[in-house]
Design a protein around this nucleic acid. Structure first.
Lengths: 262, 262
DNA sequence: CCATCTTTGTGCACGCGTTCACAAAGACAT
DNA sequence: ATGTCTTTGTGAACGCGTGCACAAAGATGG
């Protein structure tokens, strides 16, 4: 999973646990598939399998929404699709702006999953004047000078940041000042926002690193493990006296800017 | 955060809690930034602020790795960078293949965050013959017929799936059969894999839906809330006798294919 | 060498999330 | 009607993760 929430430690929203909210979209997707196949009802067991979760967990999740099932039968697919959509707020229109139209921003602009769920790409914004006016995924890119105006005119409350890390906080500040209260951040930076603003972060690099950790562990187990526990530590051990790090020896790597040169 | 893990319920790997592993990349990024600025040591308080977490949590996380700090001083930045890198397995080379070179696949191929962390894009694979040979981000796209050969020759153990949802499971099966044991999935589908294979899922649409939920809640609170609790339920209520759903009335939407027509 | 001050490392308690297991509810057949 | 059978909804136990708060460790100054 992309990484989690930032703000709001555990504010149980309207009694629905955060963990449950995060799974509702999963159920919704499975239900939509069933709906297309004209399946009238589905049992918690079947739906759980389709969504890849435990059936008891699914039933408990649904119990937070109300009693929408029928004992001995299961859940009415159409009805449940509507209830979950309503709970998630997908029955209304959510205009979204995407800031930073690099490779990733362009991919997001063309992502079908948005439009299909009540999300409407209201505008694409980029700081590069050369991009202004150029259509991406059928939508003309606008210059970031007009950011505030765009947000206000379209009543946008959700912003997507796909800029380099260096400018992400600045973009974030402008979005928030303009009235945006929910942000989906693809830039590899920790954004700080005032209370009342939600930030969710998707970090591609982090996901790979987590996979690498498990991969390494698996490889180690196969080899009998406990082979090279401490190896040769290159840098300074818990240095007693504080050693002044000699220049920026770390050379390569460095936290590369970001997702794309937007 | 992109969404979470799929397999491996809570297998505490080598004593390090899963939640801690997920935060290590965060710490590593903050530490790398400090390293570039030649900061020799950092306290848990400072580092925690930079990473956006609680300092007590950070200290506990580090305690799972060992005692790498010095009381009264803090942590040696260079040393900690190395220790975390080693723990995450980033000191070794991880060849990665990306399958499905649409907009998203191309964005991933050009993503700087990969190369900078020990991940090497070994190959780009797409099923479209028209793409074969075409360079994307400097790497020529190869045809999916050669998938097995590529995996074997380069010793790839990590695969990224950026294909439409419809073919994701098939691609996944081929990857696994060819020897891949870790998969990062961008297609909006639940992948089923044999034991021993890790799957992490990044679902852009789900993230937005979660934001919409909170956004809706915030909007509701402002209006005094409890305004339209039950509204007019359109579809069938917990139908007593099972109603045969009339055709595929659900019409619009439908779970759109995927990320890109790869 | 001792006192003081800073910062780590962690024991402990608390709360959320997960899972089990079962009683209650309703469909369906006779 | 009544009994059987299926499936929901949930009480309760458990485990993980988080955060507090403090003792131990070590640096630093006199």
């Amino acid at each position: 999973m992309a990484t989690g929430r930032t703000h709001r430690p555990a504010t149980r929203s309207r009694g629905i646990p955060e963990a449950t909210v995060a799974r509702l979209p999963l159920y919704l997707r499975a239900l939509t598939t069933l709906s297309e196949r004209s399946v009238p009802t589905v049992s918690s067991e079947e739906l759980a399998a389709a969504a890849g979760v435990n059936s008891a967990k699914l039933r408990k999740d649904f119990s937070y929404l109300g009693s929408y099932g029928t004992r001995g039968v299961g859940y009415d697919v159409e009805y449940l699709v509507y209830q979950i959509s309503r709970e998630l707020g997908l029955t209304q229109d959510w205009p979204v702006v995407i800031v930073g139209i690099g490779n990733l921003g362009a991919a997001l602009a063309g992502y079908g999953g948005f439009a299909s769920r009540g999300f409407r790409v209201a505008a694409l914004i980029d700081a590069d004047p050369a991009m202004t006016g150029k259509p991406v995924a059928g939508i003309p890119v606008q210059h970031s000078d007009d950011l505030e105006k765009i947000i206000a005119e379209d009543g946008v409350s959700i912003g997507v940041i796909a800029t380099p890390a260096g400018v992400a906080q600045a973009v974030c500040d402008r979005l928030v000042a303009a009235g945006v209260t929910s942000i989906l951040n693809f830039a590899p930076t920790v954004l700080s926002v005032p209370d009342g603003v939600d930030v969710r972060k998707v970090d591609l690099s982090i996901e790979l690193q987590i996979l690498a950790f498990h991969e390494q562990r698996k490889a180690g187990e196969e080899l009998g493990e406990e082979a090279a526990p401490q190896a040769a530590a290159p840098a300074a051990p818990p240095a007693a006296t504080r050693t002044t790090a000699e220049g920026g020896r770390k050379g390569p790597d460095g936290d590369v800017p970001a997702v794309m040169p937007a």
